[in-house]
Design a protein around this nucleic acid. Structure first.
Ligand code: MN
Ligand code: MN
Ligand code: ZN
Ligand code: ZN
Lengths: 139, 139
DNA sequence: GTCATTCTGAGAATCATTCTTGTTTAGGCT
DNA sequence: AGCCTAAACAAGAATGATTCTCAGAATGAC
């Protein structure tokens, strides 16, 4: 029950985390499953999701959701953020994390131990600004 | 944030945005649908999601996804962020936005027009820290 | 009025994720 | 080695939020 306190990850968990690290970018659960199947460490889809959830709970994996609804997973140590166009969905990776060593006030934390964060900016890419020319707004 | 544009929202879109603003906290698409049905401005589920997507594209509505997969919607002008426990899922609202007037460098933006952002912190709440004691480390 | 265009919503379809369940594996003990 | 139990595994079924379909309802120019 509390084996999650052990110092070492299981073999499957290592394989999964390694595949994520080897990937050049974030992967969906399905992508990850397909890659593992194609590699020499195949595993079932349920196993992928089960360990993905556990690794998230250990703070070793993070996920972000695209506007389309896809969930993309990445190792926590990869501290990347994006600009995403709300219209066409295109995304650009930021070169640096804008809150890299932002310290939250102690009274905000209130005993909470931060492990990682997600930060995403949304707006309009140059193309869509040009194409739209205008935006509807409230009365 | 901003915008003061000239185009007008449709009646349905106004009703939807009003319901979101009236809500004391973020609502899922299903929640919103249920509330509208119970109110004097009922509308179909497809219409709720259709306009929710459009309002996101106008930059008037934002959404965040919980680890559970639910998408929660809120008006963009509500600039709130949370601490979420990766273990038990409990969330705590931050009193202030830590990046409220953070300016992204122009060369990062590269013509992109920011409309809003999402920022969420993940970690361990005091209860779960106490219950776990420590975290597994990599091999 | 007529016709064209846009909007709506009930229900069906989608599909990523989770659950179920029978099977296999990993140890611990003798 | 043999036996036993608990945990891990994976195939397929189930779930459920979101999206799609499409026939009817509104709108709005003429
Ligand atoms: Mn960061
Ligand atoms: Mn903010
Ligand atoms: Zn765009
Ligand atoms: Zn907790």
């Amino acid at each position: 029950m509390s084996s999650n306190l052990t110092a070492k990850l299981s073999a499957r968990q290592e394989q999964l985390l390694e595949a994520l690290r080897r990937a050049e970018q974030e992967l969906s659960g399905q992508d990850l499953h397909a890659r593992l199947r194609a590699s020499n460490t195949p595993m079932g889809l349920a196993t992928v999701y089960r360990h993905l959830r556990l690794l998230q709970q250990w703070g070793l994996v993070r996920c972000r959701h695209l506007p389309s609804g896809e969930a993309l997973f990445a190792p926590t140590e990869r501290d990347e953020h994006h600009l995403t166009c709300v219209d066409c969905g295109s995304t650009h990776r930021l070169a640096h994390c804008p809150v890299h060593q932002l310290a939250l006030p102690g009274e905000e934390l209130n005993g909470f131990l931060p492990l990682f964060h997600t930060l995403e900016f949304f707006g309009l890419c140059p193309n869509c600004q040009r194409r739209q020319g205008r935006l509807p707004a409230e009365a």
